[in-house]
Write a protein that binds this DNA or RNA. Structure first.
Lengths: 123, 123
DNA sequence: CCTAAAGTATCATCGTCTGATACTTTGTCA
DNA sequence: TGACAAAGTATCAGACGATGATACTTTAGG
């Protein structure tokens, strides 16, 4: 379902959270769908179940999923959106462009990447 | 020169590094320019000089600046670029779009942000 | 030379991430 | 209806990393 990088600097739980956020945003999983159990997903990813549980809890705090003891975790209705501040998003856009520039990529490359993302989700 | 957020999750040294990277990429400081001393910048930001020193060392490892004991730190010629993998940049683009979508921003918002960045640097 | 100012090294502290383990709740089926 | 399996949750210890106080080394200039 998702993939993580054990060597990356970002914490595992954070990676799991981000990957699931992306999957939800892109419609790969829809509201009402069951997520794998923490043990299942942890097993698939070869990490501890607590790490997955932490990701789920964060997503719940963001209103993206709902967990119930003994039952499981399902994707929530997306009415209650977790609002990322505009300022932060613009900062990330800025850093992204700066890094691309320093890495020698061209304006055209970046535009292509951008437009491919625009086609992916339900924009 | 730059600003950092003491409450953010990303480490201080990393924030400093990213901010300076951005300043270099956007041409705010040019090759040959002196950066503030680690004590100076640390004082301005109210953080420890080691934290700034670590950021400088990372930037040197990336080939963006050159440090010399007793002399200072200077922005390097940008011939030796630090290459960020294409895969990582696309991943960041993807996460950014996903977050924006979940936060309720529109395609138009994102396009506007993107094009403003395109105008900023020396693309 | 001697001093001020630059980067560098060392080390202690503290927080946070991760994982092992045990607990609680829920649904189901004999 | 009781037992069991499977789900999320809680607790706690170990490890690792980030930060800062302090001392060291190098450089330039008077």
């Amino acid at each position: 379902m998702i993939r993580i990088d054990l060597t990356a600097a970002t914490p595992l739980a954070e990676q799991v959270r981000l990957a699931l956020r992306r999957a939800i945003a892109e419609g790969e999983v829809a509201p009402g769908d069951e997520l794998p159990s923490v043990r299942q997903l942890a097993g698939d990813l070869s990490i501890n179940l607590n790490t997955v549980a932490r990701a789920y809890r964060e997503l719940e705090r963001e209103g993206l999923v709902v967990s119930h003891r003994g039952r499981g975790t399902v994707v929530a209705s997306l009415k209650s959106k977790s609002r990322v501040p505009r300022k932060e998003l613009r900062g990330r856009m800025r850093d992204l462009c700066a890094d691309a520039l320093l890495s020698g990529y061209l304006r055209g490359d970046l535009e292509q990447w951008f437009h491919k993302e625009m086609k992916r989700g339900s924009w």
